[in-house]
């Protein structure tokens, strides 16, 4: 019966004014360890990457600013191919994951919510590295699906099985991202399919809206914001992964994170700024996605659902 009462939050409470430290300063003090971590590692890392991409490599005696690395990178057809590959993989897997995730959520929302949610959550727990292994074992020419196909006679040996891993299009990578992230979208979508949504659909139904009309005019708009926010996250995670494209993709063209590391490990240290340029491009695009996510989420909380 007794639960901690939900507080109205800092904006409407008046706090015990302790002697000495004013509130703003105390908040800053409390935040400082976390801000230190973020400042040193994250901000420091990004700044360092940017600086090195602009040519500042003190240990090599290079101290001038130059955009050479960027020019070289952007002119490099290999980089352009990587960019296209990365975009393709990210867009396709995010799209597939979103569609599938929402579809699953809609299918199970009424009856099988509980058990399936647990199932989805557990596959969400599988790390990308293991996921890459699983997809590889499943979809490679000598993998499980291929054997099943051979067993039923649909496939005539390893060469006959379509190349789905380490392929030029990136199907293997897409498969892993979709498999891993669709449950995330499904969980988010399920959470947003509240009884309130059901009530509104009922109201639409009473007003004469058919099933498809209800879906497009009531359900979709209501779950769109949280799902959209989750999609933005999925896109960033897909773009960020190193393990998956390294294991399931080709070494050329490779996705941007793989390219960044390749350049970084190049024995020619003069190539390093290019690695940093790629890293910076990755970081900046990702920050844009973070901003997009935050704005979507803040619009969400302003709405009364």
């Amino acid at each position: 019966m007794s639960h901690p009462v939900v507080s109205t939050g800092p904006t409407t409470r008046q706090h015990a004014v302790r002697r000495g430290v004013p509130e703003r300063l105390r908040a800053l003090l409390l935040l400082s360890p976390a801000l230190l971590v973020v400042g040193v590692f994250f901000v420091g890392g990004v700044v360092q990457a940017v600086l090195q991409s602009l040519g500042r490599q003190p240990f090599l005696g290079e101290n001038d600013w130059s955009f050479d690395a960027y020019r070289a990178t952007l002119a490099d057809p290999a980089f352009r191919a990587s960019l296209i590959l990365t975009l393709r993989v990210v867009v396709v897997s995010t799209g597939l994951a979103t569609v599938l995730g929402v579809a699953v959520a809609l299918l199970v929302r009424r009856h099988a919510r509980g058990p399936l949610t647990t199932l989805l959550q557990s596959t969400l727990a599988v790390p990308h590295l293991v996921g890459a292994l699983c997809i590889g074992l499943l979809l490679s020419p000598s993998g499980f699906l291929s054997r099943l196909g051979a067993g039923v006679g649909a496939v005539d040996g390893q060469q006959d099985f379509p190349v789905l891993t380490n392929d030029a299009f990136g199907w293997g990578i897409i498969a892993e991202y979709t498999w891993k992230e669709a449950p995330f979208i499904a969980v988010v979508a399920l959470a947003s399919l509240t009884p309130h949504v059901r009530d509104l659909e009922g109201a639409a139904r009473v007003l004469g809206a058919g099933r498809w009309r209800r879906f497009t005019s009531v359900t979709l708009p209501l779950i769109a914001p949280p799902v959209a926010a989750a999609s933005v996250l999925v896109a960033s995670f897909a773009a960020a992964s190193y393990e998956v494209p390294r294991l399931l993709g080709q070494s050329f063209p490779a996705t941007l994170p793989v390219v960044a590391l390749q350049r970084y490990q190049d024995t020619d240290l003069l190539v390093r700024p290019q690695a940093m340029a790629v890293a910076t491009i990755i970081a900046v695009s990702s920050l844009v996605l973070v901003a997009a996510y935050l704005s979507l989420v803040s619009r969400l909380s302003r709405r009364s659902l």
Partner: peptide
């Protein structure tokens, strides 16, 4: 607590989770 710069802190707490660790770690 109430403090100014809430938005910035929000951003700073979200970015390291989303921005690829590889890009940042190459830098540091």
């Amino acid at each position: 607590h109430r403090f100014r710069g809430r938005r910035l802190v929000q951003f700073l707490l979200l970015a390291p989770v989303i921005v690829p660790g590889l890009a940042v770690t190459l830098g540091i």
